[in-house]
């Protein structure tokens, strides 16, 4: 459901807006339709213990040890610079129906930059999406919606206390935003990082799925299996990885959760 396109050409000053990113990843095929480029924005309000991009959490530019070397994480760039990099893969977006995905960190924390980037990408004719935890006032989210083809919203738990214990914030604002986004008619997919010891029981997953199914227009739920790719990064940042001895979940187990969630009538898939 594409929104009306902004026909007038974007003004130059919008292209000059600066934002802080920490990575651009090409040929992403698990975060929205087709072949996509993900732009990772720096800074997040949550502190999820399992976060696989801990270098994304602080808004400040920081140094992370990668192997033997120090790597500077974070870079201030203009919309135009990012767009140039993103548009290098135009031919693949056209062939696959792909485009740009903003992720993070939290893609909602730099609205001027993010909205200008999404608008510019839309004007260039490519599909746009964001991945977000939805932890900001709805007024900000509303600014994004006209420029988005797809909103991928993380819902980690329906139990607010548990949510707060593992992410640092309660979930009330997220759940409220989820409903508002759905009611706006936005194409919305709910994604659940499945974390052992946090939300991995069939019961917890089913509850999230039931909530997702109650949102008008929501048809898809993605279960993202926990992996510990981020572990080394915590060490590189001199931080403690709190989930050190967690086992990853087996494929069979994930399929069982998939079945549990599918009872709600949603289309459930494992992975993005």
């Amino acid at each position: 459901m594409r929104r009306e396109r902004n026909d007038h050409h974007m003004e130059q000053d919008k292209l000059n807006i600066k934002g802080r990113i920490f990575d651009i990843q090409k040929f992403s095929i698990h975060d929205g339709p087709g072949i996509r480029t993900i732009v990772f924005l720096k800074g997040c309000v949550l502190r999820c213990r399992w976060c696989c991009n801990p270098e994304s959490q602080n808004f400040d530019i920081e140094t992370m040890k990668v192997g033997e070397k120090n790597k500077v994480i974070g870079e201030d760039v203009t919309v135009a610079q990012v767009l140039e990099e993103v548009m290098k893969d135009m031919t693949y977006y056209k062939r696959s129906g792909g485009g740009l995905t903003l992720s993070g960190g939290e893609s909602l924390l730099q609205p001027d930059f993010a909205c200008a980037l999404l608008e510019a990408a839309r004007e260039s004719g490519i599909n746009t999406a964001i991945e977000s935890s939805g932890c900001v006032g709805y007024g900000i989210i509303e600014r994004y919606l006209p420029h988005l083809d797809l909103f991928m919203l993380d819902i980690k738990h329906v139990d607010s206390a548990k949510h707060e214990a593992y992410t640092g914030l309660p979930n009330s604002l997220i759940l409220e935003n989820a409903r508002k986004i759905a009611e706006s008619g936005q194409n919305l997919v709910i994604r659940v990082p499945v974390i052992p010891g946090f939300n991995h029981t069939p019961e917890e997953i089913r509850k999230i799925a039931e909530f997702a199914a109650s949102l008008p227009g929501v048809e898809e739920l993605h279960l993202l299996p926990y992996h510990r790719f981020g572990q080394d990064k915590y060490e590189g940042l001199g931080r403690e990885y709190l989930l050190g001895d967690l086992e990853t979940l087996s494929e069979e187990y994930m399929r069982m959760l998939q079945d549990a969630a599918a009872e709600t009538g949603l289309q459930v898939q494992i992975g993005g």
């Binding site: 072949i35 031919t91 693949y92 056209k94 696959s96 792909g98």
Partner: peptide, 14 residues
């Protein structure tokens, strides 16, 4: 995955 893969080929060939 197959569709994205063939899109990669088509994109390179474009």
């Amino acid at each position: 995955g197959l569709q994205n893969f063939t899109s990669l080929i088509r994109g390179f060939f474009d």
